[in-house]
């Protein structure tokens, strides 16, 4: 398990990184936390000729408020989700998801930008970003742009990032006191990829749910919004009937594949159980 040889460039600015990547052509890869990329290289599943290390680009660090948005730098480590006060206050769903992401030492190194850019459909943060209706800021040879989360995750490990583009930050709408969040997953062991997981962000007026966003992970090729289920709930109170209707609607929202050890029907069943429990939390939070 030794990576194929590559050359290495440490970038100190976004522009340097973009240039270095461009010089590497199709065979360049950015490396941030590397917690998924390094094993892929060791297994020679990927063999870029050039690695562009973005860990030392100051612009990619830090969390700050920008108007109605929280800008979370791409290099924000998973462990910072648990300690950064701005995230606790303005993006609590990210904080709620963080303890489920792998293990402490992985969280010390793994980054939000890396997780979102990799778009592993079994990962927590892409689904959370989707539930938050965040926007992904990317830099490329043609300049900067912001992509809505729902447009970002295209297919299995495929995103709206064009070749050479670099994820710079994730912008999250500020959490407000009228919102409620819930997050949980069903993983065989602590830190494992979940059999199914879900993050919810709901806006409430008393016990009426005015708006709800439900995002699942480990249910298909991409993190998935459960829009039918959402529509069963929006405008209602979380009565047992409404929850049951939302659970039933998941049959149309989700189309998991048969895994060799987790049949599709079981995954759907687990998604329904999980949704029921999380909606119970949302409803019980009054």
């Amino acid at each position: 398990m030794k990576a194929r040889a590559f050359s290495y460039f440490r970038a100190s600015t976004v522009e340097e990184a973009l240039d270095a990547h461009a010089q590497g052509g199709d065979d360049a890869r950015y490396i941030a936390g590397g917690q998924s990329l390094v094993p892929a290289l060791a297994l020679r599943l990927q063999a870029p000729r050039r690695l562009v290390d973005i860990n030392h680009i100051d612009e990619l660090r830090g969390v700050r408020r920008e108007g109605e948005w929280l800008r979370i730098g791409a290099l924000t480590r998973h462990c910072e989700m648990l300690t950064e006060p701005l995230i606790a206050e303005f993006a609590p769903l990210l904080r709620a998801a963080a303890p489920f992401v792998a293990h402490p030492a992985i969280r010390n190194r793994g980054t939000l930008g890396g997780s979102v850019a990799l778009a592993d459909p079994a990962s927590e943060f892409p689904a959370v970003v989707l539930a938050l209706e965040a926007e992904i800021e990317v830099a490329g040879p043609a300049g900067r742009r912001r992509v809505r989360a729902e447009d970002f995750f295209v297919d299995l490990f495929e995103t709206a990032l064009a070749p050479g583009e670099l994820l710079v930050a994730v912008h999250v709408p500020l959490f407000n006191p009228g919102q409620r969040i819930a997050f949980d997953e069903l993983a065989r062991r602590r830190g494992d990829y979940a059999l199914v997981g879900c993050g919810i962000s709901a806006t409430c007026a008393d016990d009426l749910i005015t708006d709800i966003r439900i995002a699942f992970f480990s249910v298909g090729n991409v993190p998935t919004r459960a829009r039918r289920a959402e529509s069963e709930i929006a405008g209602s109170r979380l009565s047992p009937d409404v929850i049951a209707a939302a659970q039933a609607a998941l049959g149309e929202d989700l189309a998991p594949d048969d895994g060799d050890d987790v049949p599709a029907a079981m995954r759907l069943h687990l998604a329904r159980v999980l949704l029921g429990r999380l909606l119970g939390q949302i409803g019980g939070a009054t």
Binding site: Y8, R10, I31, R109
Partner: peptide, 18 residues
């Protein structure tokens, strides 16, 4: 696991140049 700048990290998940 080793400590990198005071935090525990997997030494198998980074390259020495980093």
């Amino acid at each position: 696991l080793v400590q990198l700048d005071g935090r525990a990290v997997h030494a198998c998940l980074m390259f020495a140049v980093q």
